[in-house]
Design a protein around this nucleic acid. Structure first.
Length: 462
RNA sequence: GUGUCCAUAGUGUAAUGGUCCGCACGCGACUCUGUGAAAGUCGCAGUACCGGUUCAAAUCCGGUUGGACACCCCA
C-alpha cells in the first residue's frame, strides 16, 4: 500500500528527467561491442557434468551386462549412406519419411546421420564377414542417434542409445536372453518397468493379417477418426495404436495378429513366453504392439516405466525385436537376428521421476579422504602424495587451487569424508602429515611414507 | 508436419508501462592470515535475440531462436 502511494504522489515528469540519461550504459565497456552468444540447435542438448551421476551407473551396468552375456562392443560411424536406412527401416515409416537427417556431402553423395543402429550393425556384419566369428555374433553399442523430430521432454534430435544385437541364431532363447538383458538394465537402474510383448510374424503372415485388418476396418469406416482413415491406406498396422476414443470399440473387435501366425511363428512365440516365465521376467501381451520399422519379424517388444509418473509416462524407454530377414535383405547371407535398444535420456528421466516420487537422491560420490595443502612446497608434496594414494587404491578429493586451510576443510566437510590429510610447511620439512578424523576432530601426526598403510587400516581396507 | 502455452543471474523465483531488476540457493572471499557448525559482511552473475510502439519497456506489439505440452511417431 505505501508503495503505491509513493508512485502516485510523483507526477510523470519526475521520471522523464530520470529516464533520459540512461542510454549510455556502461561507459567503460562501450569500446568493445558485445559478442553475441550462441544457442543450441533445436533438439540438441549438452550432457552436463551433473548428468554424469545418472549416466555413469547406466554405462557401467551396460558394460557389465555385455561382459556377462558375452557381447562385444561395436562402434559404427554416426554417418552412413542414406540408402542403408531407407532400405532397412523402410519407405513409408515415419523415421525415414520425416525424421532422418539427410544431406549431400561435397561429392554429392546422399548421406545421413544414423537414426538408429541396427541397420548399421547389419551392414558391418556383412562387410566384415562376421559369420566367421563364433556363432552367434553378439554385439552391443552405446552412442548418439539422430532424428529430426519435434522435441519434447525425453525426445531430442540427438540422443543416446544403448543396444544389444544377436546375429546368427533364430531360436527363441535369443529373444528371451535379450529381453532379460533389457529388463536387468532397468532393474540395475532401479526403474520398475513392464515389458510389452507381441509377435508380428513373418512378412507373409503379416500380409494376410493386414488384408484381414483392412477388410474389417473398411466395413467400419464411418466410425473411425480422421487419423485412422488415413492410416487405413498408409499404415494399417498403426490402426491398432489409435488412442482416439471413437475408434476404441472398433479396435476392441479387430482381428488379432496372433491368430494369423503360422505354426512355426506361433510356437516360437510360445517358447519365448515360456522362457520369460521361467526367468520370472514380467511381461504383458499387447496384440496391438507393432513397431515403426519394417524389418521386424516375429517377436517385438517395448519397455515402459511402470510408475504412473507424468514425465514421459507414455513414451517407451526402449524396444526391439527379431529381424530375421534384414541381413539377407541387405545383401548378406540369410541370418536370423534379434536386438533391442534403450534410450539413455529417457532412462535418466525415468530414474529422476522415480527418485522424486520416492524422495530419493542419486548417490553422491564417496571419498576416503580429503588432501589439504598449505603453501607452495606443500602443494608440491601434496601432488606427489596424491599419486601415491591413487596407486594404493584410495579415493582422494582435493583442490590444489585453494589456498586457505579453512576453505579446504569446508570442502572436506561438505563431501563428508571420514578423514582429512593436512600438509603444510612444517610437515613438508619433517616429512610428516596430519591425519584429522573429521568426525571426532582428533588429529595425529604420521610419517608420510606410512600414510597409505595407516589410512587403509583406518578405513578398514586392509 | 499440426495445434496450444512459455522465455528474468548457473538454478528456483520477484517486480500496477515509471527508482538503469529484488530475493533464495550456488560460487568466491572475509570476520577467524594452520583447522570443517551456525551467523554476519562483501563480491560474482540476469531481462534469449532483432526490431517496433512510448517521454519511458523485463512488462505492450511483430519477427527470430529456443523450450514445454498434446497430436503424429518413437528412444
Amino acid at each position: 500500500m505505501p508503495k503505491k502511494q509513493k508512485t502516485k504522489k510523483h507526477p510523470l515528469k519526475k521520471f522523464i528527467r530520470r529516464a533520459k540519461p540512461r542510454a549510455p550504459r556502461p561507459a567503460a565497456e562501450s569500446a568493445e561491442k558485445p559478442k553475441r552468444t550462441f544457442n543450441l540447435l533445436r533438439g540438441m542438448h549438452d550432457v552436463l557434468p551433473r548428468e554424469e551421476k545418472y549416466r555413469k551407473p547406466l554405462y557401467q551396468s551396460a558394460l557389465e551386462l555385455a561382459d556377462f552375456f558375452q557381447f562385444s562392443r561395436i562402434e559404427t560411424p554416426i554417418m552412413e549412406e542414406a540408402g542403408l536406412f531407407i532400405r532397412s527401416i523402410g519407405r513409408g515409416t515415419d523415421i525415414v519419411d520425416k525424421e532422418m537427417y539427410v544431406f549431400e556431402d561435397r561429392d554429392g553423395n546422399k548421406i545421413c546421420l544414423r537414426p538408429e543402429n541396427t541397420a548399421a550393425i547389419a551392414r558391418a556384419y556383412i562387410m566384415h564377414g562376421m559369420w566367421n566369428m563364433p556363432l552367434p555374433t553378439k554385439l552391443w553399442y552405446w552412442g548418439p542417434m539422430f532424428r529430426y523430430d519435434r522435441p519434447q521432454a525425453g525426445r531430442y534430435r540427438q540422443f543416446y542409445q544403448v543396444g544389444y544385437e544377436t546375429l546368427g541364431d533364430g531360436g527363441p532363447a535369443v529373444d528371451a536372453e535379450l529381453i532379460l538383458i533389457a529388463y536387468n538394465f532397468c532393474q540395475d537402474a532401479g526403474v520398475p518397468v513392464e515389458i510389452h510383448l507381441n509377435s508380428i510374424g513373418t512378412p507373409e503372415e503379416r500380409k494376410n493379417y493386414k488384408t484381414a485388418l483392412v477388410d474389417y476396418y473398411r466395413a467400419k469406416r464411418g466410425y473411425l477418426c480422421d487419423d485412422c482413415k488415413a492410416r487405413l491406406h498408409k499404415n494399417p498396422l498403426r490402426l491398432l495404436d489409435c488412442k482416439n476414443e471413437k475408434c476404441q470399440p472398433v479396435k476392441d473387435e479387430a482381428p488379432q495378429i496372433t491368430d494369423w501366425l503360422g505354426e512355426e511363428s506361433k510356437s516360437h512365440f510360445m517358447k519365448v513366453l515360456e522362457y520369460l516365465d521361467e526367468l520370472t521376467v514380467p511381461y504383458t501381451l499387447r496384440h496391438t504392439l507393432v513397431r515403426g520399422l519394417d524389418y521386424y519379424t516375429r517377436t517385438v517388444f517395448e519397455i515402459y516405466p511402470s510408475l504412473t509418473g507424468e514425465a514421459g509416462a507414455q513414451s517407451a524407454l526402449g524396444g526391439g525385436g527379431r529381424y530375421d530377414l534384414l541381413v539377407e535383405e541387405m545383401g548378406g547371407k540369410p541370418t536370423p537376428a534379434a536386438g533391442f535398444s534403450i534410450g539413455i535420456e529417457r532412462m535418466v528421466a525415468a530414474i529422476r521421476a522415480f527418485n522424486e516420487a520416492n524422495g530419493l537422491r542419486p548417490p553422491a560420490p564417496k571419498y576416503d579422504l580429503y588432501l589439504a595443502q598449505l603453501g607452495d612446497s606443500a602443494r608440491q608434496s601434496a601432488l606427489r602424495l596424491l599419486n601415491v594414494l591413487r596407486k594404493s587404491g584410495l579415493k582422494v578429493s582435493f583442490n590444489l587451487s585453494k589456498n586457505s586451510l579453512k576453505s579446504q576443510l569446508e570442502s572436506a566437510n561438505s563431501l563428508q569424508v571420514p578423514y582429512a590429510l593436512i600438509i603444510g610447511q612444517k610437515e613438508v620439512q619433517d616429512n610428516t602429515a596430519v591425519i584429522r578424523d573429521m568426525e571426532s576432530g582428533t588429529q595425529e601426526i604420521v610419517d608420510q611414507r606410512k600414510i597409505d598403510n595407516i589410512l587403509k587400516k583406518k578405513l578398514g581396507k586392509m
